[in-house]
């Protein structure tokens, strides 16, 4: 009922609107790989995240030595333990969660995750401390470039995360750890 009425009202009204085609997209960035990497790191730190640069073969040892009770969700045995049907009580006990990032955006430090990276969609939010691994060559310049690379039709859910959860709702003073992860560490490989 409502639908037909709304569409009829839109059709009656929209006659006077002129459709305007978009102007050309601004093209990719001229930044080099290392400039992109530096900008990405600077933005992540600005958003309250920690960044550690590592070689691929060092990652596992680093993770194991830096945190106790750490769950690395790139490992099949860990994924198997936390299926989509997993109880919230169990998920709520996650201290440190390691997830693999797909794409990093230099202009704002955002990292893209989608369903295939997430055994359960709530993990990056419910964990107290979130750790991303990301390959340096997956850093691109802007959000516009990012949406050229991802395909929303490939995933039921996807998210850009650019730091620990935060709020400034009390007198505009910045506090980390509002509802989501209190800390974010990015391991750049």
């Amino acid at each position: 009922m409502s639908k037909a009425e709304i569409l009829a009202s839109i059709r009656k009204q929209k006659g006077t609107q002129v459709s305007i085609r978009k102007i050309a997209q601004t093209g990719g960035s001229a930044l080099s790989v290392s400039e992109l990497r530096n900008l990405f790191i600077e933005n992540l730190k600005g958003a309250g995240a920690e960044v550690v640069c590592l070689k691929r073969e060092e990652a596992d040892t680093y993770i194991a030595s830096a945190w106790e009770n750490v769950l690395d969700f790139s490992k099949p045995e860990v994924i198997a333990e936390y299926p989509a049907t997993c109880s919230l009580e169990k998920l709520n006990r996650i201290e440190h969660a390691v997830l693999q990032g797909n794409l990093g955006v230099a202009e704002n430090g955002a990292i893209w995750l989608e369903d295939k990276d997430l055994p359960h969609r709530i993990i990056p939010f419910i964990a107290q401390h979130l750790i991303f691994t990301l390959e340096t060559n997956k850093i691109i310049a802007t959000m516009q470039d990012a949406y050229q690379q991802i395909d929303l039709k490939d995933t039921g859910y996807g998210v850009f995360i650019s730091g620990p959860s935060k709020t400034a709702d009390i007198e505009q003073s910045l506090v980390y750890g509002a509802h989501g992860a209190r800390e974010l560490t990015v391991l750049l490989i």
Partner: peptide, 14 residues
Amino acid sequence: AVTTYTSHYRKPKP
């Protein structure tokens, strides 16, 4: 530069 979370919901969870 961006909000901490930019979330894209397309399909219900299992």
